[in-house]
Design a protein around this nucleic acid. Structure first.
Length: 258
DNA sequence: ATGCCTGTCTGGGACAGA
């Protein structure tokens, strides 16, 4: 069972790249972020033709998340992260697939910091932590996958060089502490688990020649609940996808469980 | 301190991303 997460940065403009990667990588479950499309603009037909049952939560111009399951339709359990009914961003969708619960998340970027966007990022992480604990308490096998917009540490496994990112929201103590606290609940960061100390970046900025220089960040994470983590087989990043014509600024990250 | 690059909503330039 291969489960992937991919911030596609616009599903309409990225559709050919997405379909190409689905055919090559053959993931069983896919979490997508940054659809940048209204619900009615989601390319359901093309996704179904590729063999996947989709569920999605769209939004005009920004955000938007989806879960795809090969050969089956995910059963949606949530379309928003609990804890703030006034939050209108489409950043969370959760569904049951073959006895597992799949949570697809797109955490706020939080720049510029300090400021209201950074406050929103931190509050969103607290809501995620609260809901993640409830998911653990349910004893269901759960995967929390998506774009966390957090570089966990300054280590080479998480960032090429923190120097020019020191003031960025993705590296600040508060979101890092929140991510660490999330892990401490009992989640396994599967990419980190399988590649300790090795660069396993998932994002390379379009600007400043960062892809050719391999100046990447690790911000897309796949967290496994204890009952899934014991079945962890492998994890990785389809890095070559980032180097293609018309690529997203993120590469797909994936995990294989028994 | 800002732009760099890209997608979206628009139909030219602003906003958001990270």
């Amino acid at each position: 069972m291969k489960i992937a997460t991919f911030n596609i940065n616009g599903i309409r403009s990225r559709l050919p790249r997405l379909l190409e990667w689905l055919a090559e990588s053959q993931p069983d479950i896919v979490c997508l972020q940054e659809l940048k499309a209204l619900d009615e603009s989601f390319p359901e037909g093309a996704i179904r033709d590729a063999g996947y049952g989709p569920v999605w939560q769209g939004q005009k111009a920004w955000n938007g998340v989806a879960i795809l399951a090969r050969g089956t339709d995910p059963i949606v359990s949530r379309r928003a992260l609990p804890g703030d009914d006034a939050d209108s961003h489409s950043r969370y969708i959760e569904a049951a697939v073959d006895g597992r619960l799949v949570a697809c998340l797109y955490a706020p970027n939080g720049n510029p910091q300090p400021g209201p966007k950074f406050d929103y990022k931190n509050a969103w992480m607290e809501r995620l932590i609260a809901h993640a604990q409830a998911l653990l308490d349910s004893k269901t096998p759960v995967i929390l996958a998506g774009d966390y917009n957090v570089v966990p540490t300054d280590g080479i496994e998480d960032i090429y060089d923190p120097k020019s990112w020191k003031k960025d929201a993705l590296l600040q103590p508060a979101p890092r502490e929140a991510y660490a606290r999330l892990l401490k609940q009992g989640w396994t960061d599967s990419i980190h688990e399988k590649h300790p100390g090795k660069p396993v970046y998932t994002f390379w900025d379009y600007m400043r020649n960062r892809w050719p220089r391999d100046a990447g960040l690790r911000i897309d994470h796949l967290l496994l609940s204890p009952s899934l983590a014991k079945d962890l087989v492998d994890a990785g990043v389809d890095k070559d996808v980032r180097g293609r014509e018309g690529a997203s600024d993120h590469a797909p990250a994936w995990v294989v469980v028994k």
